[in-house]
Write a protein that binds this DNA or RNA. Structure first.
Lengths: 252, 252
DNA sequence: AGCTTTATAATAGTCCGACAAATAGCGTGG
DNA sequence: CCACGCTATTTGTCGGACTATTATAAAGCT
């Protein structure tokens, strides 16, 4: 539990908690988190707009805009008379950056993490192979810079983690495939949590640079197959580390 | 009193086309199509809410809800004073079912089709491999039924095409990975367009059943590698057909 | 009884008009 | 030339009235 998310129902409700700038945004965030965390299960019917907006102390319009956001991401469906209900999980846009962020707001389930890794294992090696064939010099230079920064700052620092993400992002971008690139947020989420788990357990700390450099070298050399295999190795090592950390620090 | 909105206003407003039920939905759709089709380019600033809603003959609230939908899908960004502007392409949720549908509303570019195929080539073989290991009997039966229906109706009919999509959906579902499954809409879109192109050029008609049955048999037998290879073959044949059709009927 | 049609009530959807908050860009003063 | 505050523009929020849709219950018909 990180955030106090309960908007006081009754009493002097303060909704100042999560900060997302605009009201409709923060309401969408709060409701989104409540949904993906299971507090509101698929099929559940939300309070009608009038009651809900009153409880949240916002205007009905702001509440409605929040609902539109959630509906656009497939989390809810609204119909007159029936009300607004949480959609089936299969309709959720699990790869949407915001939805993913909401997932990680409350610690994600181990199963979900596992599935994200599987996706990563499918997508990233293929992306690395394409990148080896298509990367331009600027992208290559950016990858190198990212790895140098990552090596220098180490994953214990925010700067180092940002460099790691930047490396993976650039690889995905170098594959030169727009739909594929939209998966970077999902990949990034998996990467971030690997790091979090690894950092929780210092003893597991393994130097992540060798695999990263191997991927880079293969991409630089334009060897697609080699890049694919190197990335496969990188991801599976990360998965191992995550599993090991989870075994020692069971979820929640 | 003031409900007549079907009146084609003489000015620059045009608002009587496709009907998408609710107003905010149809406005979002119209704007979404205008954006993905390039009519409004990234960086362009939309009219302010008052003018825009007047031109469209809808209330400002309805227009705003439409904008919230587009913003949720990463197509636009709103800020006070600056207005609402079309976001960079890299921020678009290209894999969102609705965004994808808008893309295909106006005929998609060949390059985009190509990228979607690449994604399919990455995702579907991996999914088939996982499905071979994890499918349950009900899923297997559904795949068989889909292929039987597809064989019976042929791809020339809507029923046959639906069966084709159902087969691919079921394979993806049998991989038992929720994030992966959300890609089914993208895959489905690629599948649909293959069929459209193939149907335009009857002479290219190749019987698609053999590859499909090979995938099915491998999944039924639980042979992951074999399923992967069979699916690779299936997708690359579909890609060939699409390319051939495009060569003979150049885009527009 | 069983089915169809109609009425009812509940809810999301739409509209309006006003006011609040944020902020890009300009102008003023140092 | 730069810093700083002013202002105009635009989105954001509000509340309240009215409309459209539709699930459900009631009534009517066969």
């Amino acid at each position: 539990m990180s955030k106090a998310k309960e908007a006081g129902v009754g009493g002097d409700g303060e909704r100042e908690e999560g900060f997302s700038g605009r009201i409709h945004g923060s309401i969408a965030r709060a409701l989104g988190i409540a949904i993906v965390s299971g507090k509101h299960q698929p099929g559940d019917v939300l309070n009608n707009e009038i009651d809900a907006s009153e409880q949240l102390q916002v205007s009905r319009s702001a509440y409605r805009e929040a609902i539109r956001i959630l509906a656009a991401k497939g989390l809810v469906e609204s119909r007159p008379k029936t009300g607004t209900r949480v959609s089936a999980r299969s309709r959720w846009s699990l790869l949407d950056p915001e939805v993913l962020a909401w997932f990680f707001e409350s610690e994600p389930s181990e199963a979900f993490l596992q599935e994200l890794y599987e996706l990563r294992m499918i997508v990233e090696p293929a992306a690395a192979a394409l990148a080896a064939e298509r990367r331009d010099d600027a992208q290559l230079e950016r990858m190198r810079a990212a790895l140098v920064a990552m090596q220098h700052h180490t994953l214990a620092t925010e700067a180092g983690q940002a460099a790691d993400r930047d490396f993976h992002d650039t690889v995905l971008g170098a594959a030169n495939n727009a739909p594929l690139f939209t998966l970077s947020s999902s990949i990034g989420a998996a990467v971030r949590w690997t790091t979090i788990f690894k950092q929780r357990d210092r003893e597991l700390a393994r130097d992540p640079m060798p695999e990263h450099w191997k991927v880079f070298d293969a991409i630089a050399a334009g060897r697609a197959d080699q890049a694919r295999q190197a990335m496969e190795k990188l991801v599976s090592l990360a998965l191992e580390d995550t599993h090991a950390a989870l075994d020692r620090h069971p979820t929640r």
